[in-house]
């Protein structure tokens, strides 16, 4: 072999080996050293999430709040009743105080899982602890010390009922700028994990694999579909028609518009193929129906179905111009509360 040929072969192989080497390092470590994705194990708050979580979700609240998408949504629904109720209850203004949140759901603790599942929200941001504590106590919350942390507990009702896992919900500041709100059991579990007792979700290899794969969007959620279905107590007639999905993930990016990807992992290849065909059929039908509506057609045009083996993946994008045409968004623009004639 001539030296010219040898140099070519070595050069080409070097490019390939270098590229594959960088990719393998990135794949196994979760990120390239020094890259923006160097958050190796997802958000730091995952260390307060128990290992048996069946659903973990993340939202970049600041990013969403500042997005053009939210500005459009405010025109449609300017009241934000839920946000105000939450602020009245906890003293935390979601828009002003929170940077990002991590939420989780864990299965019930009963032997047959017949009892209710529990939820926990871990919010990161800027909190006036003294003011919030005073407000909570004013509203009737009990203060106790648990694991060296002040824990506020109260009967669950209204909006907080969605977080309950028992008769009480709790709130505790786990670290400066990190607050845990949710079922009392999970808030106590988060305090235990903070003090090094128990295993957190970063030891759950299956869940962490999905979290690493999705931890790039503004919002994401990953979880075990089969466990959530069990907890939802769906009637047998309905449950038998739901595809046998084991894991699922949803990742979205909110800026001018919304784009996202839904992924599901089924029990076997055949189930995945069936699910792909069903989704494909629905999308094709929707595209035919949307022929006369250009905005809807452009959204449906963005829908991409893919996946191999047991994985089914569906991605979509809603452009900003479609959001601008949501009924109500146009006539409320610039403070005009009256519909156009």
């Amino acid at each position: 072999m001539t030296s010219r040929n040898r140099y070519f072969l070595i050069g080409a192989l070097l490019v390939l080996v270098a590229g594959l080497g960088v990719g393998v390092v990135a794949y196994y470590t979760g990120a390239l050293p020094g890259s923006p994705a160097a958050r190796l194990n997802g958000p730091a708050e995952l260390r307060y999430v128990p290992a048996d979580a069946s659903l973990v979700a993340y939202a970049d609240v600041r990013g969403v709040m500042q997005s053009r998408f939210r500005q459009q949504m405010l025109k449609v629904e300017p009241d934000e009743q839920g946000r105000r109720q939450f602020e009245a209850k906890t003293g935390i203004d979601v828009q002003r105080d929170i940077d990002h949140v991590v939420a989780c759901v864990t299965p019930g603790t009963g032997a047959d899982r017949a009892d209710r599942s529990s939820g926990l929200v871990l919010a990161s941001g800027r909190f006036d602890q003294a003011k919030i504590a005073a407000l909570l106590q004013e509203k009737g919350a009990q203060k106790e010390s648990y694991g060296g942390v002040d824990l506020f507990t109260q009967e669950a009702s209204g909006h907080m009922a969605g977080l309950e896992g028992g008769p009480h919900w709790g709130l505790a500041f786990l670290a400066p700028g990190t607050v845990a709100i949710g079922s009392l059991r999970l808030v106590k579990s988060a305090i235990d994990l903070r003090n090094g007792r128990g295993a957190n979700v970063t030891s759950n290899a299956e869940l962490m694999k999905l979290i690493r794969a999705n931890d790039q969007g503004t919002t994401w959620a990953v979880g075990r579909f089969d466990q959530l279905r069990e907890q939802a107590r769906i009637p047998d007639q309905v449950a038998s028609r739901i595809p046998p999905i084991t894991w699922f993930s949803v990742a979205g990016h909110v800026d001018d518009g919304i784009s996202g990807t839904l992924r599901a992992e089924t029990r076997d290849d055949q189930a995945a193929e069936n699910l792909r065909q069903v989704v494909q059929g629905f999308v094709a039908l929707a595209r035919m129906q949307a022929g006369s509506q250009p905005d809807l057609a452009s959204v449906l045009q963005s829908v991409q179905l893919s996946g191999t083996g047991r994985e089914v993946s569906l991605s979509f994008a809603v452009p900003a111009r479609v959001l601008e045409r949501i009924p109500g968004a146009d006539h409320r623009r610039d403070g005009d509360q009256h519909p156009r004639p």
Partner: peptide, 25 residues
């Protein structure tokens, strides 16, 4: 040895560093 390095270079040019762990497979 000409096509594969070209694909590799295109990948690193187009895909952001943050997406490499998820898209490398």
């Amino acid at each position: 040895l000409i096509t594969l390095p070209a694909v590799m270079i295109s990948y690193f040019v187009l895909v952001p560093l943050a997406s490499i762990p998820a898209t490398f497979p």
